[in-house]
C-alpha cells in the first residue's frame, strides 16, 4: 500500500524553499536575486547583502506574510558604500 503524505503537514520543505526563492526575486517589493535560503534544523535562514536597512526589513516582512507558519530568521547585511582604501595595479 502506498503511504500518502499527511495533507495537514503542508508542502514539503523543498517546495517552500523554492517558493521563497521565487518570491524574493519576483515580488516587486523585494526583487533580490542575491538572497540565499538555507534550511537549518529549527528554521529557514535568509542570507545575503542588500542596499538598505529598509530592504532588509521588507524581505523578512514579505516572506513571513506569505509563509506565516514557516519559522524564518534573517542574517542579511547592508552593503558598505565607503570609498576604497586601496587601488589595484594592473600592469
Amino acid at each position: 500500500m502506498t503511504h500518502h503524505r499527511d495533507i495537514g503537514a503542508g508542502p514539503p520543505d523543498e517546495y517552500v524553499e523554492a517558493e521563497i526563492q521565487r518570491l524574493l526575486v519576483e515580488d516587486p517589493a523585494v526583487a533580490e536575486q542575491g538572497i540565499t535560503v538555507i534550511r537549518r534544523e529549527r528554521a529557514l535562514v535568509l542570507y545575503g547583502e542588500v542596499e538598505s536597512p529598509h530592504r532588509r526589513e521588507e524581505i523578512l516582512r514579505r516572506v513571513s506574510e506569505r509563509f506565516p507558519d514557516v519559522p524564518i530568521t534573517s542574517d542579511i547585511g547592508v552593503i558598505r558604500a565607503q570609498a576604497p582604501t586601496e587601488i589595484e595595479q594592473l600592469p
Binding site: G34, G48, E49, E51, I79, R80, A81, Q82, A83, P84, T85, I87, E88, Q89, L90
Partner: peptide, 12 residues
C-alpha cells in the same frame, strides 16, 4: 557591489 563591498573599486 555586494562582491566589492565598497562604493567602487579602482584599477590602475
Amino acid at each position: 557591489h555586494p562582491v566589492i563591498k565598497q562604493a567602487y573599486s579602482v584599477f590602475h
